[in-house]
Design a protein around this nucleic acid. Sequence first.
DNA 1: ACCTGAACACCGTTCAAGT
DNA 2: ACCTGAACACCGTTCAAGT
Lengths: 180, 180
Amino acid sequence: MVLDTGFALLADDGLAGLSMRALADRLGVQAPALYWHFTSKSELIGMMALALYHDARCAPPAGGDWQDWLISYGRALHQKLTGLRDGARLCAMAEPMRSKASLTAPAIAAPLTDRGLDQGFALDAIASVTSLALGWASFEANAPMHALLDGMIDVQRSFERGLAALVTGLAGGVSQNPAG
Amino acid sequence: MVLDTGFALLADDGLAGLSMRALADRLGVQAPALYWHFTSKSELIGMMALALYHDARCAPPAGGDWQDWLISYGRALHQKLTGLRDGARLCAMAEPMRSKASLTAPAIAAPLTDRGLDQGFALDAIASVTSLALGWASFEANAPMHALLDGMIDVQRSFERGLAALVTGLAGGVSQNPAG
DNA sequence: ACCTGAACACCGTTCAAGT
DNA sequence: ACCTGAACACCGTTCAAGT
C-alpha cells in the first residue's frame, strides 16, 4: 500500500522529506506515476490523516460507558499524533477533501449513540475531544509555546487532566441535553 | 513591519501564496533581502504565530474571575484562528523556535495566578484551552472531518459548548488542586 | 491500465558583490 | 547596515509517449 510507504517516509524524514519524488523513489517508481493513483499530494496527505483518525476511532475497547469511550479515544488519538513524527502537523495541514464522503455523521456518532447519547451531543463531544487531542499534539510538537511547556513538569499528565476536565464538563451538560 | 505584510499576504493568497519571493515583492525588495531580517521562513512563520497568540492573550477584559478569563481567551483565540485565512494551519505548522525565549512561564500564567490560581494549574488550564481552540480551528478549516462538521448545525455553538465544558471541568478539579 | 522522460513554473536558501 | 543578481538544489504537476 502506498499510504504505508508514506507513513514510513514520514517517520524517517519528517514532513519536509515527504515529497512525491522521495515517495516514488521508495516505491521504485517515477514521481509522475503517483498521479495515476492520487489526484494530488493534498489528497495523499488527506488520506493519510484519515487513516490516523480511523485508527484512533478503533482503539477504544468494546465495554464501558460513553465517557470511557471518549477518554480512551482521546488518549489514543493524542498518542498516535505525538508518536508518529510530524503526525500532528500532517493532520493540521490536511486540506478538505470534497470527493470522498468518508464517513456519514451517524456512523461517526455511533460509538456514543450506542451508549445512549443523542446524535447532536455525540458529534459535539467527539469534535471537542478530537480538537483537544489535535491541539495538544500540535503545540507539543511545534510550538512557539515552549516556555509554557517548559513550565509544566509532565506534559502527558497535563493532557490527561485537560481530557478528564473536558469529559467531566461534557457529562455535566448532558442533563440539559437528554441522553435518551 | 514585515509581519503585517505577511498577514496581508496570508489573508489574500493563503498559506500556499506566502512565499519569500511574494512577500519580498510586496515590500518592494528582492527575496534574499529578507534573510537579513529573518534567519529562515520558519522563523518568520514562528513570529507570525506568536503575534497571533499574543493578540488573543490581550483580548480578555480586566475584570472577572479566572473562568471568565479562560472563556474569553479561548473565544478570542478561536476567532483569530478562524477569522484569518489559514490562521490555524499557520500556527499548527510553526516549528519550535529555540532562540527567542518569548515569555517566561510565570508571565504566561499571570492572568490566572492574579485571579487566585496556582501556577501549575494555571499553565495546565491555559494549555488545554489553547489546544481546544487550535484543534477546533484546525479541523474547521481543514479537515478530512467534514462529515462530522456537516452533522452539526452550528459549528460556532458547538465550539462554545466544548469550551464551556472544559472550563467547567477544570473548575471541578480546582478543589483537589488548591487555588490559594 | 500503468508507467516514463522531459519539461514548466515555481520554491527556500546561499553568497559574492554592490552601496 | 542593507540590498541585489545569479545561481543551486530542490519542489508539485502536466503531458506526450511508451508498454
